[in-house]
Simulated assay, not measured.
Amino acid sequence: MSSVPPPVPPPAPSDGAFLLGGELPVRRLGYGTAQLTGPGYWGPRGDRRDAVAVLRAAVEQGVTLIDTADNYGPGVAEELVAEALHPYREDLVIATKGGVVRTGDSSWHIAGRPERLRAMCEASLRRLRTDRIDLYQLHRLDPQVPMAEQLGALDALRQEGKIRYIGLDTLTADQLEQALSLTGIASVQNRFNLLDRASDAVLKVCETHGLAFLPWFPLANGALTGEEAASLDGIAERHGATRGQIALAWLLHRSPVLCPTPGTGSPAHLAENLGARGIRLTTEDMSRLEALASA
């Protein structure tokens, strides 16, 4: 990527750093761009200038991992990332996804043919205004295409220098092990949060192999900030925090490979989310939160 020198970093937060691919450092609490698009991730949301401002604020407040996708919009989120952040700072990691075609706000079509994956990746390169995507994630495995063919297409793009690392989205532990037998994988995105730990087996595989796990819906699509999460209030009050901050802090404490990328279009909500970096949960806190997650 094109780069400019980063500013002096802020004080080290509790999210620390994760070495993506074993070598590329990212701060573990990132920013996701889905909420910069309209309902159903279709079309734009609000004033474009506001979206650009939030993206810039995220980086100014220390975020080094931006997670987006070609079908957010479609194309809208990637274009916003480039408008707001290009030329990219040398410490900024851009992750995007391909492999799903959108034809409406409720229409998703998996497209894993090698030629389609190549075309999607090259379109993302143009929208992001870069020669290489740091982390290119297969948004869904196509059940109609052998995994080896899908990963082979991404591996070819990696060998050509168009992507640096390969990631996978929404798969089982067995599928992840199979993928690892075929090529190098740097990250996984599955749904995982305080209320939903169905992907715990996938997380364990990530821990074993040193893969980043980017949990989507880290705040349970808002459920962990509302009245459904009132059981978090006692812990939140002790830390002078919000329910959402405790839910994000739980992820950061739960495993060193978890790298949540909560999204928002609100500067205030962005600042609140990033405030989770400074929360130090105690062993007792974690025990209570684990019990809530198991309830």
Rank of each mutant, 00 (worst) to 15 (best):
G112T: 05
L151S: 10
L117H: 03
P114R: 06
L80K: 04
S187M: 11
S287V: 10
L171Y: 08
H139P: 07
P10C: 00
G234T: 11
T283K: 14
A123L: 07
Q137C: 10
G222Q: 07
H109W: 00
R288L: 15
Y165G: 08
P143K: 07
E290R: 13
D233R: 10
D142M: 07
A153P: 08
Q150E: 15
Q150H: 03
E228L: 13
R89Q: 13
L135S: 05
H86T: 04
N273F: 09
S187L: 11
L29K: 02
T172L: 12
D233S: 13
T264P: 09
F213E: 03
G21F: 03
E237S: 13
P13W: 01
Q245E: 08
S287K: 14
L182N: 10
P256H: 10
R288E: 14
Y31A: 02
G38S: 08
R238P: 00
T172W: 09
H253D: 12
P44L: 04
L292R: 02
A17W: 10
D15T: 03
R127V: 06
C259E: 05
A82R: 08
G244V: 01
T183A: 14
T170E: 15
G167S: 11
G275D: 08
I110F: 05
N273L: 05
P7F: 01
P39W: 00
T242L: 10
E237G: 01
T261L: 15
R56I: 04
E237H: 09
C121Y: 00
T261D: 10
L19A: 15
V59L: 09
A17K: 02
R288A: 14
A12Q: 11
D131P: 01
K97G: 09
E79V: 01
V202K: 10
A220H: 08
D91K: 04
G22A: 12
L224V: 02
D155E: 15
E90D: 15
S14I: 06
V8I: 12
A276M: 07
G99T: 05
G152D: 10
V63S: 06
E227R: 14
M286T: 04
A34P: 00
P256V: 02
I133S: 06
R164P: 04
L80T: 02
D91Y: 06
W250F: 14
D169S: 15
A34F: 09
L211I: 08
R102H: 11
V54N: 10
L195N: 12
P267K: 06
L214K: 01
D105L: 02
D47G: 06
Q137G: 04
R48P: 08
W42R: 05
V205N: 07
A34G: 00
S14Q: 12
L270A: 06
A186V: 06
D169I: 03
A77H: 04
P13N: 04
P256W: 01
R191M: 14
A291R: 14
V81R: 03
S107Y: 00
